[in-house]
Design a protein around this nucleic acid. Structure first.
Lengths: 353, 353
DNA sequence: ACATCACGTGTTAACGCTCACCACCACGGC
DNA sequence: GCCGTGGTGGTGAGCGTTAACACGTGATGT
């Protein structure tokens, strides 16, 4: 059964035949256009044989409903907008696809606008563009730390849900529990007998980074372990490498938790260059579980975030808000990440004190 | 100047005030709705003071044009659809943002649907979904090798342009000249005095991979150099690592060109593990210029593709097709990549034959 | 036997906008 | 003084769809 697209291509005669509308379908099926509409929205009150007759007519005419007309009359576009940080960052990109998947599942289209830099004005402009396009709601994938204040006012005007790493605000948030994730990582390291854990952090203006820092610190405090100074980072492999250069020179270092996998990659490299063996001498844990992380040397123990689930729940939440005209929800759902243990972590070396 | 969003939020009284329409603006400005429309589409025949009066009215009312109504009457949605491979691959993701940027520039929205796997049916379904959403045209970012035949029929029905790596077909293509890029890389290596160049290839069902293979081979043939067997790869760091393990054992190897940067990363790692120094003993060139590649050890010489330009030209091309009702263009525009020389390549070691 | 009701279907009116067309007002040239 | 002529602006129709209601018909209840 070939599902054919017929729009307004040139007819055999050479004239342009306009796309068929409900009227045409109705005429062919011998019913009113309203009945066609009923079939389309599968209303219960249509006799089965009428329904099949209409569907047959739609088929032969290659009828496709006009989205704009429907949107006009219903006041809903069935489109959700996504304002996302346009970079190569693993998180945002993955979340976007998660959103797309979830939206497609329930018959929603996804309109994307990229936010070139994480500034309040950039983000605001992006959302405004989405609104002008007539989306039913907006999903924001960005480090909203920065834009927080200016986002609040928008949230009361249009359904808005922040995905990933938003602190407090006048809107709902769906994200991964960063604190729980970094606790997982840190606890894993402590459980292996390490005295303490060093941390290479992410950029301080990202909620994800501060969350991971917080989780790490809290576990160390709970355990009464020494809290070493944090090493700065910016998600990049380079920053990890630089941190690794330092770590490699500090004899007491036996366990390192990095803000993300790319940073871990850099750390691993630096350690290798300095002859510090992983995991025999030093254990390393990352965050994200990027596709490559299983092929690092050694394969990286890391925290896996289910971005698809974030997308799913985000879309679900947004739809709730769209449905109820309630705009000022500030619910936060956190998804618990899991630890993927690979070969970059091992029992702490027995040091002689 | 606060650009405020006013949609249909709760009015002070508690009642829901409907969004203002042209009529409301017209009434406030003391003109007809048609004049408001003229201002909106900046038609020339409006007296300056009338125009400002109307604009002021729009401002105070917080008027926003209804996208659906306009689309209904004009028959154009001002939305272009993008069907893209939903993975972590650098190329597709970068191109998507390039497209988004270019589209935004000319007032078009971008609707995305992900293609989960590069199969003909998946791709077809994705495009069909886009068409049902009422997009004005479709951009395909996927290895269309596979789907080629089934795409042809679609291209005649809706404006369609393939981005990145499409061979022949009944549609236009905009992409990077893969052959030229790999020629650049291979020639660079030969110019450094290397006898020949080894190649770690990409997956054979990707046009990008075969293009790069072809360019590499052609340069070697032109130079009368020996053509070593190609090593298989799949874009991943792992496949590069495995290839690198082999290469490290072959004494004659002095130059390696990999299908992409991730593969190069794997090769570098393997070579390092085996004590083969880069670039002193072996030179390595990648392809893509991912953000990290400048921080590899050593920083990677690689081929840079201007994905933003691909997006720009793709959008421009698509718009041309949408404008003229010509559907069966098969134009191909290729963008020439450039070589970014870093520290992973050097003069060939002086071997004693 | 008559009112009632559920069902299936048709009729009509929006939705908010643009397009084609027409009306008006000043000019200027004849 | 009359009629173009061009710059302004208004009027009405319609885009394709859904919502609200009206209308038959046959079944059900009393």
């Amino acid at each position: 059964m070939t599902e054919e697209i017929i729009r307004d291509g040139p007819a055999p005669g050479g004239a342009v035949r306009p796309a068929p509308g409900m009227k045409d379908v109705a005429r062919l099926a011998g019913v009113s256009h309203q009945t066609v509409s009923r079939v389309l929205n599968d209303s219960p009150n249509v006799r089965p044989d009428t329904r099949t007759r209409v569907m047959a007519a739609m088929q032969t005419l290659g009828y496709r409903p006009n989205h704009a007309a429907r949107a006009l009359v219903t006041g809903r576009s069935q489109v959700i907008g996504v304002a996302t940080l346009s970079g190569q960052l693993f998180g945002p990109a993955s979340t976007l696809y998660g959103v797309e998947d979830a939206a497609a599942q329930i018959g929603y289209a996804v309109s994307v606008v990229g936010v070139r830099e994480p500034s309040a004005t950039e983000l605001r402009t992006a959302i405004l563009r989405l609104v002008r396009q007539g989306v039913d709601g907006v999903l924001v994938i960005a480090p909203i730390h920065i834009a927080q204040g200016s986002l609040d006012s928008l949230a009361t005007e249009i359904p808005l849900v922040a995905l990933e790493g938003a602190p407090e605000g006048a809107f709902s948030v769906v994200g991964v529990d960063q604190v729980a994730g970094s606790r997982l990582a840190t606890q894993h390291l402590l459980a292996l007998g390490h005295r303490t854990v060093w941390h290479v952090a992410g950029p301080t203006d990202w909620f994800e980074a501060t969350g991971r820092l917080e989780g790490w610190r809290s576990v160390l405090m709970d355990a009464g372990a020494e809290i070493p100074p944090t090493l700065p980072g910016d998600w990049s492999a380079r920053s990890g490498y630089e941190a690794g250069l330092l770590l490699a020179r500090i004899p007491q270092v036996s366990a390192v938790f990095t803000a993300n996998d790319q940073t871990a990659l850099g750390v691993l490299r630096a350690l290798a260059e300095h002859g510090r063996r992983v995991p025999e001498e030093i254990s390393v844990v990352g965050f994200d579980d990027v596709p490559e992380s299983g092929y690092f040397i050694p394969p990286l123990t890391t925290v896996r975030q289910d971005f698809a689930e974030v997308g799913r729940q985000g879309v679900a939440r947004l739809l709730e808000i769209i449905g109820s005209r309630q705009r000022d929800t500030t619910e936060r759902s956190l998804i618990t990440p899991t630890l993927t243990v690979r070969r970059s972590t091992a029992q702490a070396p027995q040091l002689v004190d």
